[in-house]
Design a protein around this nucleic acid. Structure first.
Lengths: 193, 193
DNA sequence: CTTTTTTATTATCCTATGTCAATGGAGTGG
DNA sequence: CCACTCCATTGACATAGGATAATAAAAAAG
């Protein structure tokens, strides 16, 4: 159950077995069924979630009732509401499994302990956040400058795996367009070939 | 020249005088005139920039020639093209002073040395990136769910200081709308009162 | 001061994308 | 295998905000 986390961490910082064993004691493994929630809006985001298997998504619902997906997290990714996790404020996000999934959970106190006992992980998380920020900034700029079609094509290029596994209306919601628009774009794209 | 950096770092991690003196040796202070570039698109983003005074902005120019502002960084903020800084690839961004400014620059090798000599700073940067990511994610979700008017009103609330100091067309470009639209919105907002 | 450059406003027209609504397929659970 | 919910497609219509262009006002430069 910890293979992927182990691998991912070691790509960035080398942990001794002893150090990684501390991880084993602090993370809570859990299996999720498709459509099962890890976090419901209004609750506190108690955990940082590492995805060992399956795909999860985080999303908000605006006043008009439309969903907007912040993250699609397949194997090897982290997902959480960072703000709620660190402030203990109620979350605006929902986090849900899109497929049956296996995750590793860590709560706030365990996380503090982990960083204290394995200070190397400060570096791991720093680099993780750095890459995450770079990707999010890029996505933001794309959302401002690209047409719906460009967004879709670029998304397919960047995350071809997700396109297969995630229903189209969720891709649309991730891209910030409606399902109807995405459907029309796909039709166009096919006919262009 | 280092007062603000000192203060900001100490809000998150407590550094000894000796540790902070290492910072003094590794950062390069520089003064900038209004409209002076710190980074031109195509060049490598050689520095992470800490703003001691003034405001800087980072932006891209799309194929149609429109500018899109990624960051507006007043005193106490960091600004850079993270991707270019870490990969040494040419940058897509321009970074420019909006007002006369004083900045502290650190290049890649100095930055590595800094983290090696003052490991506490891993934690500082981790937390910095964490907050930055939270803010960027929020901005992304807002850009997907809010109308132009909501974006503007919320921006005024969140960054009232910047609104005063930055020309409106840059605010518009930051919000992902045209200057004309912003102008119309402002008119509406005033007449509503 | 005068000139030039930057910035902001306003009007007209246009288009990409959203909204609403109906239909048919595909998947899933009992 | 039947019923039900989810999902994708398509058409007709509506609209927020973009594009273009002209003008004015403000700021900077000389």
């Amino acid at each position: 159950m910890f293979e992927l986390l182990h691998k991912k961490v070691n790509e960035i910082v080398a942990l001794t077995d002893e150090e990684f064993n501390i991880c084993r004691t602090l993370f809570i493994p859990r299996k999720l069924r498709k459509r099962q929630y890890m976090l419901q809006g209004g609750d506190q985001g108690k955990y940082q979630i590492f995805v060992e298997k399956g795909i999860l998504r985080s999303y908000t619902i605006d006043e008009k009732g439309s969903e907007h997906i912040l993250q699609l997290a397949p194997e090897g990714w982290w997902i959480s509401d960072l703000y709620s996790f660190f402030t203990a404020e109620p979350s605006d996000y929902h986090i849900e499994a899109i497929e049956d999934a296996e995750v590793l959970l860590i709560n706030r106190t365990s996380w503090e302990m982990l960083l204290k006992d394995v200070p190397k992980l400060e570096r791991y998380f720093r680099i993780l956040l750095q890459n995450h920020l770079i990707a999010t900034q890029r996505r933001l700029m794309q959302s401002m400058s690209e047409t719906a079609e460009e967004k879709y094509l670029k998304y397919m290029q960047t995350y071809p795996d997700c396109v297969q596994r995630v229903p189209q209306h969720m891709i649309a919601s991730f891209l910030g367009i409606t399902r109807e628009t995405l459907s029309r774009i796909r039709k166009q794209v096919v006919s262009k070939r």
